[in-house]
């Protein structure tokens, strides 16, 4: 049950998309998001759709998996579509009671929902194809220049990677503690809201204690291996940009330019 969470899950692979430098992928996703917001015509959406399809097919991640990431947000998408259908003024198609459905409304609803879905799918492509460690390394390097204005970039990245690292451990721990308390007759499913909240106490207390214990152990383990922050620290695997990174930058620039041009001519 708890193990089935897919948010931010990484699917190991050895495709062009997986091998791209994490910095490249982060930048590409940012460009993709910007382009998604600029796009507002059939032609530009079609272009973005091609980009997304290309990324998914190159990464060899099953479409069903990518679509699964959209599932938790279906409600949000539905509300967006609903509001757009009824609250856009324009040429009225159907009218009943206080509701009016306009042609523009339908187009808006389709475009807006499509935009949200494509945004989610696109950003998920980043976490699906990049391991959390590579992702933090990428973020750390991209934010590197901020060190000049005394932003603790390394510390932030380290905290992030440790948090990511602990998520599966804590989920497993929660599962175990839940089973143990169930074995003692704990009941998490019945009762009113207050009773249910109270029933969580036997899980939360041991979970917090073990999280603190783990954090403490980790800190000791790091210190005993002479960790003392990012100062003068080098990496085992230094990120290097290669041909495929430059090619993807060129493609991204072309797509962005294409979308801007299409928007400019109002196509």
């Amino acid at each position: 049950m708890l193990k089935d969470i897919t948010l931010g899950q990484y699917f190991p692979g050895d495709t062009v998309v997986h091998r791209l430098d994490p910095r490249t992928k982060i930048v590409l996703v940012l460009v993709y998001i910007v382009a998604m917001f600029i796009a507002e015509s059939f032609a530009s959406y079609a272009l973005m759709l091609v980009v997304l399809a290309l990324a998914i097919s190159l990464s060899r991640i099953r479409l069903a998996t990518v679509l699964k990431g959209v599932k938790p947000l279906i409600f949000v998408i539905a509300i967006t579509a609903f509001l757009n259908i009824f609250y856009t003024s324009g040429r009225v198609l159907v009218e009943f009671w206080i509701f009016k459905i306009t042609e523009e409304g339908i187009f808006n609803a389709i475009f807006m929902s499509l935009r949200i879905i494509m945004l989610i799918m696109g950003t998920f492509m980043l976490t699906y194809t990049t391991s959390p460690i590579m992702l933090t390394v990428g973020i750390e390097q991209l934010l590197g220049p901020l060190k000049v204005i005394k932003v603790p970039v390394h510390e932030l990245a380290m905290m992030m990677s440790m948090a990511l690292r602990l998520i599966p451990t804590l989920i497993e721990e929660t599962d175990k503690i839940m089973s143990a308390q169930k074995a003692r007759g704990a009941d998490f499913d019945t009762g009113n809201l207050i009773q249910k909240a109270k029933a969580l106490l036997p899980i939360l207390v041991p979970l917090f204690i073990s999280a603190f214990r783990r954090a403490d152990e980790l800190a000791v383990a790091m210190e005993s291996r002479c960790y003392h922050g990012g100062e003068g620290r080098t990496r085992l695997n230094v990120l290097t940009m290669s041909g495929r990174d430059y090619i993807s930058f060129a493609l991204a620039a072309a797509v962005l330019a294409g979308v801007i041009t299409l928007a400019h001519f109002g196509l």
Binding site: A180, Q181, P202
Partner: peptide, 17 residues
């Protein structure tokens, strides 16, 4: 079954609360 079959997990001390 939960009350008639008692189950003590590994490292049960981590479930004290």
């Amino acid at each position: 079954a939960r009350s008639r079959v008692g189950l003590v997990f590994q490292y049960p001390e981590y479930q004290l609360f």
